[in-house]
Amino acid sequence: MTVIGAVDAQNLVDALGLGAIYGLMAVGIGLVFGVLRLVNFAYGQLIMAGAFTLAYASRAGWSTWQAILACFGVVIALSLVMEVTVFRPLRTRSPAVMLVATFAVSFLLQSIALLVVLKVQGQVGIPASTVAQLAQAVTIGGVDVRKVTIVALVVAIVALSGLALLLGKTTVGLQMRAAATDFTTARLLGVSANRVITLAVLLAGVIAAAVAVLLTASQSYVTSDFALHDMIIVLVGVVVGGIDRLWTATLGGFAIGFTRGVINGALPTDKSVYLPSALFALVILVLILRPAGLFAGGRSSVVDRV
């Protein structure tokens, strides 16, 4: 029994780490969705760009801190470029056009990464060793806790409290919340659209960079489809949780990451082949019963059922 208990605790700790990372990604998606009504599918490729920065930095022999700094610089710059060149011209368009445009950007960034890696390396991926020491484990009470899990949890808590303070206590935070509730009215009352949106994109970029560091630490081989699958799962989690509000979206992201972690660890592979089907069937069920999101409470702000 103790063996199973230990395995379970181990499993839970790993799942908690994955949940924290997915929760952070959900915050990044939710922030931009709040002010822009845009699901940024290319968010995963921002993370990929950060991972590649780390990988190339470790090839160039930079120290860990230099590499992480470079990662933040690249990801934030790329987010702002994306906002100016893609989001801004499409701001008034239908959600479908904006979503497909971010697909195109995501596809473009992936192909560039593939081209660069193939050209430079002659192989599909490159290892990133600069943050690898984060993957080492420390043993706490018989459970191996990888440092990245602790860092992920700390980063998630710090980021969420920082964000809560920013949104709750500052003027610009108030403006962001107002814009997320009713953008037109907020603008009428003097909220600067560009300022609010740029800030949201910037914050999402900072979070993407942090996620890039965390994900690279746990899967140190960087390929062009890095974070793509994680992004899709987080997106599902965000919508299931309730994309309309930041906290429900975050909770959705955390929940799906945690669930995935627990299930992956608990089931042997030959038993889990139909698991994706079961999970996605559950997703459909939740969406039909609660289209506004699992955690959205009683209010239904958007007409989502016909």
């Binding site: 959600p95 979503l99 919508v239 996605f280 459909i284 039909i288 016909v306």
Partner: peptide, 22 residues
């Protein structure tokens, strides 16, 4: 599924794709 619209419909149809592929 056709009771849904907007993003919920998008994600639900995506779930169909995942299940079929699986």
């Amino acid at each position: 599924l056709m009771r849904l619209s907007g993003l919920a419909a998008g994600i639900a149809t995506f779930a169909v794709l995942e299940i079929t592929h699986n």
